[in-house]
Amino acid sequence: MNVELVLFGAFALLTLLSAGLVILARSPINSAMALVSTFFFLAGIYVLLWAHTVAVVQVLVYAGAIMVLFLFVIMLLNLGESAHRGKPTLSRILGGASAVGLLGVLGITLSRVPAQPANLGPQAQATFGTMASIGQSIFTQWLLPFEAVSLLLLVAMVGAVVVAKSRI
């Protein structure tokens, strides 16, 4: 039995389980905690896909910073346990419809994936997805998008201040 196959199965199962917990948990804090474990197990799947940098960023940004933000929002709104379940509100109908749409898009995409993975060769595999190779392409080939990211972050900063600070 292949170790990678076993690990993929375990990570995939645990990702699905914790993702299910996110939507099934009654308390929003429990949902957020289940989301943290979803992010961690997804990082494991990224490692199995040779996406080392993506795995590290997943843990650093999503499981770290984004989750803190989610918890702050939950505490900011002081959400208790959801009392009325199963009532079809407009946001639930829209959410369900977009989930079905996403499932359709993912299904179409998956059916187009070639059965045989592309063979990159041992040389490419040794450096594929590492910090060094990704940095090399960011700072040479993708220079303009990289500098545009700084503008995007600037807009996000100004937006955060304008939206949140004006209401205090």
Binding site: V61, L69, F72, L76, L77, N78, M157, A160, A164
Partner: peptide
């Protein structure tokens, strides 16, 4: 309820 100040700091932290 938490103060919105925490939210601003968390957004800037991200």
């Amino acid at each position: 309820r938490f103060a919105v100040k925490f939210y601003v700091v968390a957004l800037l932290f991200i």
